[in-house]
């Protein structure tokens, strides 16, 4: 792949998906696009990128974007977020939503569905506490192929073993040949939709819990701030935001407060949001105000 092809690929990925690919990430291109090149019968990744570069064929471009943005996913990945969900978020919701009895959860980078289904399995364990409740889990992802797999609820032996306690396997899956099929009482709890985080969130509705793990790392600071800001608008009061183990909100503005003793868990602070929104309005009117990076500099 020539430097100009690589650069043009980076530009396109950034424009189409917000993905930031630094110069040292050429290996990532090789490893993620290898299977696509093979499937489409190109000699190698370089040949395929070269073909895309000269033709800009939409179908090829879509497959490249999808493959580059796919997330590695497994059941109960990192364990802690699901323990936090069970021990902290769920008891909280059962209290705070006692009147409406309606919980909405967003898995914002659903990929092949394991995160959303892990949450569904946890909720199913607690169904005695949720009699008469309506629980919606929405899984969104950019990649249609990943979502097709998510919808099928069919996983390989490798996939059902990574991170998932065997008791969950016994309770929630049936063996189909060499594969494992999630039971319909779990799959029916989750809806999957193809969705780009760069687009407006309004149509998704409001949420009580947002899992957005290991997605923001791919974006630059401004885009991260922008996504977090737009997510705030989809937050019900006290909405919990869950980030990946290696992610923080440090240096990013937004009205989320870390929850004590629950790594990666944040609570949306509506009062601060309203207050900051007012300040921001005042701030913007000030003639000395210079536009900062990102849309959230006013919270400082």
């Amino acid at each position: 792949m020539t430097p100009s092809e690589f650069n043009s690929l980076r530009d396109m990925l950034n424009k189409e998906s917000g993905l930031v690919l630094s110069e040292d990430k050429q290996y990532l291109v090789e490893s993620r696009l290898g299977p696509v090149a093979k499937k489409l019968e190109y000699k190698d990744v370089a040949t395929m990128v070269s073909e895309w570069h000269s033709s800009k064929k939409a179908s090829l471009q879509n497959q490249i974007v999808e493959a580059m943005t796919i997330n590695e996913s497994f059941f109960f990945r990192d364990k802690t977020p699901f323990d936090n969900f069970k021990d902290y978020t769920l008891p909280n919701l059962i209290k705070s939503k006692a009147t409406s009895k309606h919980i909405r959860i967003w898995s914002a980078a659903a990929s092949t569905g394991q995160e959303a289904y892990s949450l569904a399995m946890v909720l199913n364990e607690h169904k005695h506490l949720l009699q008469g409740w309506r629980v919606e889990i929405i899984g969104t992802d950019l990649c249609s192929e990943a979502l097709a797999k998510a919808k099928s609820g069919l996983y390989s032996q490798f996939e059902v073993q990574r991170g998932m306690p065997v008791t969950y396997l016994v309770k929630n899956f049936k063996q189909v040949g060499t594969m494992w099929q999630l039971d319909s009482n779990i799959t029916s709890m989750v809806q999957f939709r193809q969705f780009n985080l760069m687009n407006s969130f309004t149509g998704l509705g409001k949420f009580d819990v947002i899992f957005c793990r290991n997605v923001l790392i791919y974006f630059n600071r401004e885009t991260k701030s922008d996504i977090l800001k737009r997510m705030e608008a989809q937050c019900n009061n006290g909405c919990h935001l869950v980030l990946g183990a290696s992610e923080t909100l440090v240096g990013l503005n937004g009205n989320y407060t870390p929850v004590a003793n629950a790594r990666g868990l944040y609570e949306h602070n509506r009062e601060a949001a309203v207050k900051n929104e007012k300040q921001s309005t005042n701030f913007k009117e000030s003639p000395t105000h210079k536009t900062g990076t990102g849309g959230l500099s006013f919270t400082r």
């Binding site: 032996q157 490798f158 073993q161 990574r162 991170g163 306690p165 065997v166 396997l169």
Partner: peptide
């Protein structure tokens, strides 16, 4: 716990 062979390092560590 229960591991179905073939296994790899990730599976063992996760179990």
């Amino acid at each position: 716990e229960y591991i179905m062979k073939p296994f790899d390092k990730e599976i063992i560590i996760s179990k």
